[in-house]
């Protein structure tokens, strides 16, 4: 056991996990977090708190994570390398550990060009891979510079990372995951799967290299509310792939929202039945968090297991 978070315990117990995502508000309104926490509690095992996602200023993921921790909910705080250098990242990681936060998801981060402060200076002193390595070092008792952490137990982290089977070059995508696992990643959340065939091909390569045995792979899923939105992502969002099949299914649907939910439910069933090496699902219901309980219910994943 690395950190003993709810997520880690369930994964190690062999449970098929379900995680969700809560976007901190563009304000200091703590109620947004507590409200989402109350609504989603017991419907998923842990929740990502995004770190200024798409480079839009929001409440800090660590602060939001602390609010969930106090509510007895397991947070997964995201940390990107866009806004902090190795000094800031390590300091914040220690702070998060001091506040009782255990799961940290390491990301490179979106470029600020599309955010709400495109004139900002960016950092990228490190990248996702070296951030994982650094957090792994911290939990082993060393700072990035090799200095030892003294007079205290090292912090405990359950380290996560992202993987994008839909970016290019395809062959490199598995190598990149392997590098992250080598660096110390314990679990993986994939980019949302809207092209199952490509995901399956990627998983095949993952299994060939035995990576599913070295880390827990959770499949990213996104319920889509509109057919137009799906087409937009298909054409315009870098690093995403949306199959025509999915677009058409949504276009033909009478109740698109219901179809969007059914699509995710079908995906969960398909993955559990057919794809070996997937340890759970991560549901990214961006601005539609309230749908998570329905999805969990319909996919037969309720009630969520308890561990002590």
């Amino acid at each position: 056991m690395k950190a003993g978070s709810n997520l880690e315990k369930l994964l190690r117990a062999g449970e098929f996990v379900a995680t969700g995502e809560i976007g901190p508000p563009k304000s200091c309104d703590a109620n947004v977090i507590t409200h989402a926490g109350e609504m989603l509690r017991n419907h998923a095992d842990a929740f990502n708190l995004t770190d200024n996602q798409t480079a839009i200023v929001r409440m800090s993921s660590i602060a939001a994570g602390k609010i969930l921790t106090d509510m007895g909910i397991d947070p997964i705080i995201q940390m990107t390398c866009r806004d902090r250098n190795r000094i800031g990242l390590q300091s914040d990681a220690l702070g998060a550990a001091a506040l009782g936060i255990k799961n940290v998801l390491c990301l490179s981060g979106d470029h600020q060009r599309f955010g709400n402060h495109p004139m900002a200076k960016n950092v990228w002193d490190m990248d996702a891979i070296t951030l994982i390595q650094t957090l792994d070092g911290l939990r082993k008792g060393y700072f990035q510079n090799g200095e030892e952490i003294k007079k205290c137990e090292p912090p405990k982290f359950f380290i996560g990372c992202a993987a994008n089977p839909f970016a290019d070059p395809f062959e490199f995508r598995v190598t990149r995951l392997e590098k992250k696992v080598d660096a110390g990643a314990d679990f993986v959340q994939t980019q949302c799967i809207l092209d199952m065939e490509r995901f399956e091909r990627w998983m095949e390569l993952v299994r060939e290299r035995g990576l599913h045995e070295r880390c827990f792979i959770t499949a990213g899923l996104m319920p889509i509310k509109s057919a137009k939105g799906a087409r937009y992502m298909q054409k315009n969002v870098a690093g995403m792939m949306v199959s025509d099949e999915i677009c058409e299914r949504l276009e033909k649907a009478e109740d698109v929202k219901a179809e969007g939910v059914q699509l995710v439910v079908d995906q969960i069933n398909y993955i559990r039945k057919n794809i070996k090496g997937v340890a759970g699902v991560h549901i990214m219901a961006v601005a539609w968090e309230e749908i998570i309980p329905t999805i969990i219910e319909k996919a037969g994943l309720a009630p969520r297991p308890k561990v002590s």
């Binding site: 866009r82 490179s108 470029h111 990248d127 996702a128 970016a167 070059p169 980019q191 870098a238």
Partner: peptide
């Protein structure tokens, strides 16, 4: 764009 040392990142397509 991010001066990454271990790219390409997930935004490369």
């Amino acid at each position: 764009s991010k001066s990454l040392m271990n790219g390409p990142c997930g935004g490369s397509q």
